[in-house]
Computed example of a mutant assay.
Amino acid sequence: MTTAAGPAGAPGRAGPPASGSARAVVVDRPGEHRIVSGPQPLPEPGEVRIAVHAAGICAGDRELYDGTRHPDYVRYPVTPGHEWAGTVDAVGEGVDPALVGRKTVAEGFRACLACERCREGATNLCAGGYDETGFTQPGAFADRLVLPARLLHPLPDGADLRAAALLEPAAVAAAAVLAGAPRPGDRVAVVGAGTLGLLAVQLLAASSPAALLTVEPRSARAEEALRLGADRACAPEEAGKEAGGYDVVLETAGADVSAQDACMLARRGGRVILTGMFDPGALGVDPLHLVVNQLTVGSVFGASSAAWSFAVRAFTGGLLDPAPLITHELPLTSFGEAMAVVGAEGPDTGKVLLRP
């Protein structure tokens, strides 16, 4: 096995994989990574092997690399990468060989399928313990990825795998939309126009809302929300003028005040869904405001199988196009550089992809 290492901000130096070999990024501990090369992994019974086409980097990957992710939700050393799309190139015993050559994405949570939460369909809340591709299991920052075949969501032959790499965050956005249950004619607001927010805007636009507002401080992101289906956008400091005006509010920013802002936007009897990952010290929601206005507040952690199916159907049906969110594409060996781009949070940085 060969390795090539580099600090964040500097690409690794491993070359293209030799025949029969595969490369992978390995984060040994926070701040330290290697590009390793070795034999291609073989699928066990019930598993498939994926030739990765593209894999997205998100804030969770940056947390993994920086060492700020809660230790219960990461296991070092690990190959990151939970947002990806690719093609099945091998199957294990007991798996339909017709899957070979099929374009696909897959769920990340390795749910037990036996606990009470799994049996009611909430596979993202599995009581068997947290286990997820790219955090506790090898992920897609690699040439090849092996995972259980039961997690696959196959795509049509003509699917754009570059765009499909964003179907994991799209599934989270779909979970939020399903939880918010917008009806045609509802007034809907989205707080935050990052990846989740922009994907949610597209899904919500398909529900025929009477109004679709995006609250976002970055002008470029606000303009992108308008292009993707929002009919209005405003900065957070202007959102107070909209207080009490929305039937459904989706919070996707995870900022210090965004949960509070989302609740203030909701009408009396309205519905608020929180999806952002908040840092310690974020402002809470005023319980008196919740009670007096009889708000229904829900939250989303990851995506269930049902949310994945919803996102994939929206994508294959042409209602969801994640491609405009992609701003950077780098080779696998430039993992360090890609992480630095994500960490810099530049105004023109959207989704960053690694391309094996």
Results as ranks from 00 to 15, higher is better:
L325N: 10
T79G: 04
H53L: 01
T275Y: 06
E47D: 14
R110T: 00
D89K: 02
E329F: 06
A206P: 00
A10I: 13
A59H: 14
R183F: 07
L199H: 09
A5C: 10
H33G: 01
H70N: 12
A306K: 13
R218G: 01
A311C: 07
K351V: 06
T68I: 10
E132G: 09
V272D: 05
P16Y: 05
V248R: 06
A54R: 08
G269C: 08
A114P: 00
I50Y: 01
P287W: 04
A243F: 15
P156H: 11
G46L: 06
A225D: 01
E116W: 00
C112L: 09
R144F: 03
Y246S: 03
P182Y: 05
A85Y: 07
D261I: 08
G38Q: 04
A266P: 02
G9V: 04
I273P: 01
F310Y: 15
V74P: 03
L265P: 04
R150P: 01
V188Q: 03
V312H: 02
V248K: 00
A243H: 08
V78Y: 05
R34Y: 09
A311Q: 10
L204K: 02
Y73S: 14
L290D: 01
A174K: 08
E251S: 04
G56P: 13
T2S: 13
G281Q: 05
E329T: 15
E168F: 03
G94Y: 02
D348F: 07
E329M: 10
G139N: 10
G60N: 13
V48K: 11
H289M: 07
L125G: 07
R13T: 15
P156N: 15
M264N: 11
V26M: 13
A259R: 00
D261A: 15
E345A: 15
P331G: 12
A210K: 01
H153L: 14
R34F: 00
R110F: 15
H82Q: 05
A8Q: 07
L332H: 14
